[in-house]
Design a protein around this nucleic acid. Structure first.
Lengths: 237, 237
DNA sequence: CCAAAAGTGTTTTTCCTACACCCATGT
DNA sequence: ACATGGGTGTAGGAAAAACACTTTTGG
């Protein structure tokens, strides 16, 4: 019984090994209706090191939540993006000893995607606390968030090539041209229209929607949906 | 000055946010000379939950080291594998609240590779504390190490297909047959000899070595090296 | 009838796959 | 001389890439 007591444990973990604070940071992307690939930034105000400069949304873990739960929570409370509409996957864990000048903070970074169409008007517009920034212009961020962002963009590009991850950045219904443009914006290259359509249709991940989009003074576009709602699968493009 | 004091910080982080213990676990692979893909296991002895059962090597972070440094350190102290010979990349961070029944431990898992040829005789042989286990037989591990191992194998297979990661599991010099066998063991499939040779040579990642291997009673094999020592690159196979 | 984006086929080239025999060496 | 793994070439099919015109609508 004495032995059992010895083994019960870290209700009383020794002080010296509980030196770290755990955090989660989120690189949340969307393709804005002007076609720009954007990331959600927030105003970080932690003088003297980070006085009112931009950064990724994030915050500390609670003792009873996973890193992913903390990421979803802070994405909502700090950046006003609701988890229900977003896809999230773990990206990288940042553990440099001096990454936060105030003390040892280890941060689990997440990659999130949200369809622009499903954001409320207020979420789209942004304000002084949280806003959408074009990828190229999101620079000089707080902490090591430049590095997180660069890892996130690289990962997004890689996964766009061999998974259906872009289904999580598209509206529920979209034209093939819109899907092609999402690929072009994310991959930063132009794609042949006819080859793209043949390829994406041959993968059989899309189904025709009932409706068409009757936009400007031109032929209306057939709308499509992704067949498999949530998940992703291996492919190529 | 008062303001400054307020911003100095987590020399005095509040107790309640320093609830977690940080750890690193390592899935370290090699291809043994019998051709088996193996993972390094250690004996975990933490009764009552894990009394002398196998697990991945790992351990806690020190306050002044990164997760990767801790991984390298524990790989050496717990599993007797020296970092100098190993390639290591971050795999996934496990943060389930109850993953360690003794208290909240968040673990950063790493994938490591080491060439069998570069291990000492003692490291190759293993003992009661640390040994090489074939992938299929490494099961019912401590904590969530089954899950880590499964993620690691999946990742290794994926990266073998589009990077030169296998350069880190091969000896410095090797025959094309040996390289082909490494691919076959890792991917768990057989590969056509002629097609493999044509493909791998067309990628121009190998250079001929000066020497040949004069093994049994047959024609000696030309030996090859990877052109770019350390790094990896995008390819296909 | 004009502007603007939607939609559609064919040809060429590249890459993957399947497949069988000769070569150099040690015993 | 023979057993053993090392080494090579070709032909057919599938997928990728290059490329231009017709269709449908709104103004």
């Amino acid at each position: 019984m004495k032995k059992e007591a010895k083994n019960k444990i870290p209700v009383k973990t020794p002080e010296h090994i509980r030196f770290a604070v755990l955090a989660a940071d989120i690189a949340c992307f969307t393709v804005r209706d002007d076609g720009k690939l954007c990331v959600r930034l927030v105003r970080v105000d932690r003088p003297p090191h980070f006085p009112g400069i931009p950064g990724l949304p994030g915050g500390l873990l609670d003792p009873k939540e996973t890193a992913e739960e903390a990421a979803g929570r802070h994405l909502f409370t700090k950046a006003n993006i609701r988890l229900a509409r977003t896809y999230m996957e773990q990206l990288y864990t940042m553990s440099r000893v001096d990454r936060d000048p105030r003390g040892r903070v280890v941060s689990v970074a997440y990659l999130a995607l949200v369809p622009w169409e499903r954001l409320s008007a207020q979420e789209q517009a942004g304000d002084k606390q949280a806003w959408w920034e074009e990828i190229g212009k999101a620079t000089r961020l707080a902490y090591d968030h430049d590095e997180i962002l660069s890892i996130a963009v690289r990962r997004l590009r890689a996964r766009a090539r061999y998974t259906t991850i872009l289904s999580r950045i598209m509206p529920l219904e979209f034209s093939l041209t819109e899907l092609e443009e999402a690929f072009e914006k994310v991959l930063g290259m132009s794609i042949d229209k006819r080859n793209f359509r043949r390829k994406i249709l041959s993968l059989e991940v899309l189904v025709k929607s009932d409706s068409v989009r009757s936009g400007g003074q031109h032929r209306p576009a057939q709308l499509w949906k992704f067949k498999n709602k949530g998940v992703e699968e291996i492919e190529v493009l």
